[in-house]
Computed example of a mutant assay.
Amino acid sequence: MIGMIGIGRLGLPVAVNLMRAGFEVVGFRRSDREAFVHAGGKALESPAEVAEAADVLLLCLPNEQAQSEVFTGNQGILGHLRRGKIVIELGTYRREFKLAQARSIAEQGAEMLEAEVSGSPPMVAERRAALYIGGETELFERCKPVLEAITAHHFHLGDIGSAVAMKLIANSLVAIHTLAAAEAMNLGAQAGFNPHRVAEVIRQGAGSSVMFGIRAPMMAAQSFTPAPGPFNTLDKYLDMGADMASSLGCPTPLFTTATAWFKRALSEGRGEEDIAAVIQLLQADSRQI
């Protein structure tokens, strides 16, 4: 039995992939459980009930506060973990936080893998996302059937903490490549090209990237909601990525430049829009020249 706590924007396609692979999935979310139930999941009334029922428990929560509440709050999971149970943590938190989480789980006799998701919810739904895995090699091998049900692309990188480091590296490139795509799309429009044509032509050549392929059509259409990757979601990765680079003494000229543009978008109240909307900042500044 698989348990899923956090069946929202990212957790729902993870749960659906598991069910399509033949796993029985029980889950908990405070509200909006209809899509999960419609897909074949069984909604339970508390995190504790999910932890009690599941052999493998996946956590997909937005921040450390939410994770802590599910862990140790009223009807939390910690008291329901025991030997033989496995926790797979999908959330992105500080390395120190994850290590403390793993120690608490181990004290209950259970085991934990760190599994960072690299990819948007649509990429997860299409099984094109990647999972970066941190934890014991033997536990990773035992969990392969679950991981392979989520996506064929999963990489064991080392101990707990290694996966979040790789996720921050990947998301620094998401920021850089999205701003680069916006710069190219804006430059094309200023040069007189139809933006849809720019998106079509560039994505077929050497200048393309995954982010260009995903976000250039959105930029061409000026369509930024509903957002597969909103500014609000990216924000914590910008901060965590900057902190990691600083702690390692690494210069990040492109990431630092990109961060300023995404922070500007947030300051303008664009948090719920997709990060592709960064092109509108470039367009606004272009009109001022």
Rank of each mutant, 00 (worst) to 15 (best):
I5V: 11
I5M: 03
V16Q: 13
A21K: 06
V25G: 11
V25Y: 12
S31Y: 02
S31L: 06
R33V: 02
E34P: 05
F36Q: 04
A39Q: 07
A43F: 04
P47T: 03
P47D: 02
A54P: 08
A54K: 01
L57I: 03
Q65E: 15
F71V: 12
I77H: 08
G79Q: 12
G84P: 04
E89C: 08
G91S: 15
R95H: 09
Q101C: 07
A106V: 10
E107N: 08
M112C: 09
E114W: 06
V117T: 13
S118T: 01
G119I: 00
P122F: 04
P122W: 07
V124Q: 09
R127V: 07
A129K: 04
A130V: 05
G135H: 11
E136D: 15
V146E: 09
V146C: 10
I150D: 01
H153W: 11
F155V: 03
S162P: 00
A163P: 04
A163N: 03
A170C: 15
S172Y: 04
L173K: 02
L173M: 15
L173H: 11
A181K: 05
A181D: 06
L187G: 09
L187P: 00
G188H: 04
A191D: 02
A191I: 01
H196W: 03
M211A: 10
A216L: 02
P217N: 09
A220G: 09
A227K: 13
P228L: 10
F231K: 12
D235R: 14
L238N: 07
M240N: 06
G249W: 07
T259Q: 15
K263L: 14
L266A: 13
S267F: 03
E273H: 12
Q280T: 12
A284D: 15
S286F: 14
Q288V: 13
